[in-house]
Design a protein around this nucleic acid. Structure first.
Length: 109
DNA sequence: CATTTGACAGGCG
DNA sequence: TCGCCTGCCAAAT
């Protein structure tokens, strides 16, 4: 895999696409895995552009397990619906069982 | 072409 | 223990 030819965004998408079903992760973990721990914002911004990509952006939340990006999805609670559909317990845009569904790329990959 | 903003996180006071 | 400040890249204005 020629990461040099891939933009930061594309590398983010590549990681997000590897998130297992029913699992979630946070922006910082992805950034850290890519070697840019202080660029969590870029991961978030990459998600903003992920609408045109085949990326399960609903599996990426902030470090509090809060669905900060739900406003970028269709409808009012699509992101929450998708997560609950995968077995993730979400209440008021907040993942309750974060410890159970959390997926760390630096550990799993 | 230059400036501002944005799905965040962690370090410091 | 709580809150403010900085770092990072890309896209939009």
């Amino acid at each position: 895999m020629k990461a040099e030819t891939l933009s930061f965004f594309e590398r983010v998408y590549d990681v997000v696409r590897q998130i297992p079903y029913g699992r979630v992760t946070n922006y910082g973990a992805i950034a850290k895995y890519l070697g840019a721990a202080k660029s969590a914002r870029l991961v978030g911004y990459a998600m903003n552009a992920s609408h045109t990509k085949d990326v399960p952006a609903h599996r990426v939340v902030n470090r509090n397990g809060l669905l900060t990006g739900k406003h970028h999805f269709e409808g009012t609670n699509l992101m929450q619906q998708l997560l609950e559909n995968e077995g993730v317990v979400v209440e008021d845009n907040q993942i309750l069982n974060l410890d159970e569904v959390y997926w760390d790329p630096t550990k799993e990959l």
